[in-house]
Amino acid sequence: MTVLSIFEHMLWPALASIGFAVLFNVPHRTLIVILGMGAVCGLTKYVTMEFGMHVITASFLAAIVVGFLSISAAQNKLSPMYVFAIPSIISMIPGAFSYRTMLGLIQLTQDLNPDQYVEVLHNVTSNGLNAVFVLLSISVGVSIPMLLTRHESAREIVALVKRNP
């Protein structure tokens, strides 16, 4: 874990977030916040994984961090929470797992001897399950703040916190 690798794991997710933010046509005022949240998301995932956490748990933690950050972002920049949350977590989309799953599935349809078949099937199952669970943990993680506070909008959550400090 060097300074350079930490920097890289903040820079690239942040750039990915901005790309998707523009694709989703977010308001101008939110772009800079999404850049920062993408970086924090990448950092959280990288550091937790460096400490030996599994990719599913690490993604879950990073998504929770993004979820909480998006509450205050929504309050300050006057946009719904998921305008910030969805572009920020997009860099954690399990692209590698899904790609390997797809390649494996294509291989499974071809003529394989039983040993090869078992090996490919093993890869497909493992990669496919990882992809599904990472996706699940991201979506659940992002909505954790809303689930815990039982409110649907950032303004209500902030109002709740202010009432009961």
Binding site: A16, S17, G19, A96
Partner: peptide, 18 residues
């Protein structure tokens, strides 16, 4: 052109993360 460039940059970042 901004959308095209930034989304391409996002994919470049994904590639780097891989």
């Amino acid at each position: 052109i901004i959308i095209l460039l930034l989304v391409s940059l996002a994919d470049l970042s994904f590639c780097r993360l891989f």
